[in-house]
Design a protein around this nucleic acid. Structure first.
Lengths: 243, 243
DNA sequence: CGAGCGTTTGAAATCGGTCAACAGCAGTGG
DNA sequence: CCACTGCTGTTGACCGATTTCAAACGCTCG
């Protein structure tokens, strides 16, 4: 089913400091190396897992990005998250031993495979790792709550502003530019994330451009007035998350 | 700040089987008794915690119900969840040692206090308890994802149908009637949960009543045609969560 | 009984959705 | 190299669901 598998190592991975080994000693990180033995490449559009698949592994992203989504029978889809390198996928599978969403590559990417049962055992031995997993889960909850606020209480402009700030901050954390980056997702996917139609997304991008807030050329985005975006998105709520 | 504190015991609590001790042996449950030493009463409208308060404890609901919400500067509010007896509150505090939402009593209620640092230590000793906490966190994520789908992809009627089914299923799990119950929240709170205005909520309740789907008399709800509610809410997605 | 709040209902306004045409660009194949 | 095709994104005109504004209703509690 999946194209290729190779050995992986946390202790030498460049993404390591944003990823699972965060906060571990060198010896502890080496213990993870044993678990994280395989990685896996996906081409754009390929599935990492489907809703209902048996939950066996967590995945951490080495490079590229993915989306997770829920589907309705009639074709409507809700994108739950856009996922960047260093982030962990599959956490929603722990609750009922079945993945609860679809995970799809937004572009060519590579993920590490972490068998959960082994990882759980290791967590028993390394308290700081256990704590890290709790925090990972809890932060995902917090992110989802922000997303809920966005979908339930913001208007279309505010929603777009939220997304751009959210992406910007996460990229900054990884040492990348917070003001100029590529959108791996298309307009429709932006809409499915924010509960908007593609035409609305497009119109608001045009409006932001004309207002001098951003510059968009197809997938490339440059933020010119980030303050205005913060103002629109309800600034007090986009701040408090640290990592 | 909080009205009253009394001794609590999991091993004798009637709500126990839906709560933290779920799946533990008698000896293990007695170990929890030591942790869960205090409980606390709240009157309707009182806060259990505020966004930004230091995270010290998880809370489990003995009776009554609460809401958690996020607020925007301009007064808009997004309700994140309605919480019933046996459910755990405060999980969003683990990630950054600060509660990330407001928790408010919807009616008079009582909660048990579980100091998280002690609970975490106990989890190290009892693997099944550790697993339970992971599952708790993961299921909250799954619930939030459903809620996201609801806010982002459903129309007003479908949203209401989703809420009623969601409440109905959770009450059924507790051995209560799945077709007739009281809504602890007001119309405005329903709206803040679903991303709708109070008038829209009211109109759709009237419409459902006229269509013979429900019977509402102020806070009392009777579901007459649950199949139709399932159909509206996108049935395939309200099923798979087990507990 | 009257005050006050929460809820319901109606009419008008608005935001975002729908439908439709078109533009831009990548890939394909002559 | 350049038409042809198909896909994605943009723009405009119109439509409709939900919001807004306003008024009335009906509890509950002093």
């Amino acid at each position: 089913m999946h194209p290729l598998q190779q050995a992986a190592k946390c202790s030498t991975c460049v993404i390591g400091k944003f990823c699972l080994p965060l906060g571990l000693t060198i010896e502890e990180a080496e213990q993870i190396d044993i678990l994280v033995s395989q990685k896996l490449r996906l081409n754009k559009g390929e599935y990492l897992y489907h809703q209902g698949d048996p939950f066996i592994s967590l995945y951490s992203i080495r490079f590229g990005s993915l989306k997770t989504e829920l589907l309705l029978q009639d074709g409507r889809s809700q994108i739950i998250g856009f996922h960047l390198p260093g982030e962990i996928l599959g956490l929603d599978g722990i609750g009922n031993n079945v993945y609860q969403s679809e995970a799809i590559a937004l572009e060519d990417c590579e993920v590490c495979i972490v068998q959960f049962s082994e990882f759980e055992t290791l967590c028993q031995k390394i308290p700081s790792l256990q704590r890290h997993l709790y925090q990972l889960l809890s932060r995902e909850i917090t992110q989802d709550h922000r997303h809920l606020l966005t979908l339930g209480s913001l208007n279309a402009e505010e929603k777009l502003a939220y997304l751009f700030i959210y992406l910007s901050e996460r990229l900054a954390k990884r040492g990348l530019s917070s003001t100029e980056f590529n959108l791996a997702m298309g307009r429709e996917e932006i809409g499915d994330y924010l509960g908007l139609k593609i035409e609305t997304v497009s119109r608001i991008l045009s409006k932001f451009s004309q207002a001098g807030i951003i510059e968009v050329k197809s997938k490339h985005l440059k933020i010119l007035n980030i303050k205005e975006l913060y103002r629109l998105a309800g600034s007090e709520l986009t701040q408090p998350i640290r990592q």
